[in-house]
Amino acid sequence: MALLSKKDGKLLMDPLADNNPITIQVLGICSALAITAQLKPSIVMAISVMFVMGVGNVVISLMRNIIPSKIRIIVQLVVVATLVIIVDQVLKAFAYELSKELSVFIGLIITNCIIMGRFEAFALANGTWRSFLDGIGNAAGYGLILVIVGFFRELLGSGTLFGFPVLGDPVEKTGLYAIGYENNGFMVLPPMALIVVGIIIWVQRSRNKALIEEN
């Protein structure tokens, strides 16, 4: 952290825990849940969002004094859409299978509330370097939740990580399966993503009582 002053470091680290975009700010849930059945798409999604947010925050912050406030939403959307097209084309070129798997959810990064939320709340009012840190920090906080959810859903749902079996072979009954362990197929289904995130929120708020809501 020698490169960063204390304030800048806070910008980067806060969204990872106490100001997490998903569990505290309630932003960016839309695309977060559908792609977390496995670890690999979760990580790709996290990296894509980090790229779009880092660059997008810098661009918006550079343009903040020349954007008329009435049309700022459209300007922001155009900036995000351009960046997302880049991500989409890169994925199609270098990881075609994965881009098929993520299907419309790469496109939906455009409407990921995290991005618009941070543009509105931060990049429009702050300098370039700080906006960049804020973007990276928030994307990392978002990615962290994605990776946690993806990890548990893939491990408990299919007994694999990154597609490699880690708990033994369910057909041959080796490893954990030898003593009667079964995969919980339910974890792979979409509704479990919501419940896993709910549990993460529960754990986080139990540890930090200040975050508990009134109602």
Binding site: M192, L194, I195, V197, G198, I199, I201, K209, I212, E214
Partner: peptide
């Protein structure tokens, strides 16, 4: 207490999705 608000909404939505 820790589930109030957002947490319980997530879990209810999950149950509704099921």
């Amino acid at each position: 207490p820790a589930l109030r608000g957002l947490g319980i909404t997530f879990i209810i939505t999950g149950l509704m999705a099921i």
